[in-house]
Design a protein around this nucleic acid. Structure first.
Length: 263
DNA sequence: ATGGCTAACATGGTTAGA
């Protein structure tokens, strides 16, 4: 049976306006079919739609002033768009979902949480609970589901450059990891770990203290796939190269290839 | 080394990120 690759990426761009040249340059070298962005940091009226179209992409975006903001883009039509988590009243623009070539793609920017004693941490855990309910419903509706984005949680200690220094901190705390594993329990698979990976594979490095050069990062940007979709995954890598460029995002893209049935 | 750096908004210094 013939298959066609579906190359899906997630990238926290930390301001789409600043990172438009990086996106264009990366797309020149990386053949992609669909892409979820986070931290676009722009209202929908100012979204650079013409520039995105010039890159051969179309889709939809859901943004707000200054903070957050997500976009779901593809080379083929994005259908049945849904912004936010239905039924969850959230003033922050963090989720956009659509169907691309039969795959239900849900692009997420999970709250950071700031610190364990912060109200933002309470918001993060409540938000993840709402996301879990939403994903449970989506997995009933669709066989092929991909949940992609900046999860702001490092799943395991091997996803942390210095687990001892980070122990108990936000992004690695037990309650956050339990919430993430709650998503895995729905049947979602972290496809990156389906393959052999280099030691010290991360997707985010602090701008400060030469963290990137020291390989002092975290793997917090993930591609999760429903079991039937994960079975079609043939590759998943961190595209570390854009992190080396001038004025980079602090996150690198993560890319997965799914060999979808059909020509 | 409880700092370091980047971006938005604003146009100096705060908020937020992770």
């Amino acid at each position: 049976m013939s298959t066609t690759p579906f190359r899906l990426a997630t990238w926290n761009v930390n301001s789409l306006k600043v990172r438009l040249p990086h996106l264009a340059q990366w797309l020149d070298s990386a053949p992609l079919d669909a892409l979820g962005l986070q931290e676009t940091k722009t209202v929908d009226a100012d979204f650079p739609a013409a520039e995105i179209e010039g890159m051969g992409l179309s889709g939809a975006w859901y943004g707000q002033k200054t903070y957050n903001g997500v976009a779901l883009l593809a080379r083929s039509p994005v259908r049945d768009l849904v912004r936010g988590i239905p039924g969850y009243d959230d003033p922050q623009a963090r989720v956009i979902a659509g169907t691309i070539r039969g795959v239900r793609v849900i692009d997420c920017y999970v709250p950071n949480g700031q610190a364990l004693d912060s109200e933002k941490y309470v918001y993060k855990l409540g938000w993840l609970s709402a996301l879990r309910d939403y994903l449970a419903e989506q997995l009933q509706q669709h066989a092929q589901v991909a949940v992609i984005g900046d999860f702001n949680i490092a799943p395991e200690d091997r996803d942390v450059h210095d687990p001892r220094a980070w122990e108990g901190q936000v992004l690695v705390s037990a309650a956050e990891r339990a919430a993430l594993h709650g998503l895995f329990d729905l049947g979602l698979v972290d496809v990156f770990r389906r393959f052999e990976q280099p030691e010290r594979s991360y997707s985010w490095w602090d701008y400060r203290a030469m963290a990137f050069r020291r390989k002092a990062g975290l793997r917090i940007d993930l591609i999760l796939a429903s079991t039937p979709l994960a079975a079609l995954c043939s590759q998943c890598t961190v595209a570390v190269e854009p992190r080396r460029w001038e004025r980079p995002s602090d996150h690198a893209p993560v890319v997965a290839t799914f060999d979808l049935p059909g020509a």
